[in-house]
Amino acid sequence: MNRTTRRKALSSAFVGFCALSVLIALVPLALVLSFVVSQGIRAINVDFFTQMPKPVGEPGGGMANAIVGTLMLAGLGSLMAVPIGVLSGIYASEYAGTRIASLIRFAADTLNGVPSIVIGVLVYGIAVLPFKQFSALAGGIALGIMMIPIIARTTEELLLLVPGTMREGALALGATRARAVFTVVLPAALPGIITGIVLALARISGETAPLLFTAFNNRFFTTSLRQPISSLTVQVYTYASSPYADWQRQAWAGALVLVTIVLLCSILARVATRRLESMHAR
């Protein structure tokens, strides 16, 4: 019986280790979030949202330009990624099984795994170098490229979940394939696709690396597509590695805003998928 006791002890130890792993992973999560919130709350104020950055060494100021910049970059990215992502997702699901469809799927998965810094290098070559100018447009393209695979894969998978009878119903009434997809199949999957877009937005609004040498940074307020533009992430990076206490303070404030955006998007997407789930369960 000694052996059985030993085996059971080992088994319990293993269960304990697995539970402990969850705790170990939650510790850094709690630490990061608590630091960002505690440091960020102390640092954040109205100025942070309304003021421009002050020159080096001068305390005060805010990140108004960077906040607008991030919104613009995310908007540009979506403008590019939503049509490409959704339509290639439609192709991949409507013509699933064809060679091009599997190629699209493969390309999306590949792109999804490409390091974001490499996307930056690509966009530098195609959208910065030819014009000899860092620009908001280049930054938007970089973020757009990062969003495309997420949207494409989500669209494809959700369309495949739409019951075939729905599509057949439309086709039986004499609708063309395009009509059937756009008026019946796509609307049925729309909530899920929007969730996918929100998740993609959450991911790219926290991206820094692909912006470093595309959108670059700008101390001034601009909405021009052809000018370099500031973003929250790049601004946090600049301030975090600076020696000035006030800049470091603002970096925490920026981090708090970023984390809030990302968490809101995640929770939003979660609530949406919950509703989706209950819809599908019915």
């Binding site: 490409i84 439609i90 190629l103 999306a108 792109l111 490409v114 490499v118 063309t176 395009a178």
Partner: peptide, 30 residues
């Protein structure tokens, strides 16, 4: 089914953009 062909080509082109991006990374960087 002319409508279908247009739909297929139309959506397929966007899919090709996706594929082209991946190819472009390899090509441009090289």
């Amino acid at each position: 089914m002319r409508g279908d062909l247009g739909f297929r080509v139309g959506t397929g082109l966007f899919g090709l953009v996706l594929i082209a991006i991946v190819v472009a990374i390899g090509f441009e960087l090289t």
